[in-house]
């Protein structure tokens, strides 16, 4: 049973441009940021079952390579800020700073 939360559901399609795909470092960054928000976060790869965006194992299981298109869905009171912060991580071309 899902408890309805105030706020709205926001979606965005994001193409992975990192040549290494969605690997350990972006996954770690993503999960650490996602945990700060109250909103429910989910990610979905072309027609596959959506996975919990707060589960690093789930993200790794997506095996999102360069060029993969992911549907990011955020649902909750802080959805707008979450969508913004999380998209930024997914769109980053490199994590080798």
């Amino acid at each position: 049973m899902r408890v309805a939360m105030p706020g709205n559901t926001l979606r965005r399609s994001i193409t992975i441009v990192n040549p290494q795909g969605l690997h350990m470092r972006p996954i770690t960054a993503f999960v650490e940021v996602a945990a700060k928000f109250k909103s429910r976060v989910s990610l979905c790869k072309q027609n596959e079952t959506p996975i919990d965006g707060k589960s690093p194992l789930g993200l790794l299981g997506l095996a999102a390579e360069e060029g993969a298109v992911l549907e990011l869905e955020v649902d909750g009171p802080d959805a707008e800020q979450a969508l913004c912060a999380l998209s930024e991580i997914l769109e980053k071309p490199s994590f080798d700073d």
Partner: peptide
Amino acid sequence: AVFMQDQSL
């Protein structure tokens, strides 16, 4: 650290 706290795991 993040993986060890994965709720599904």
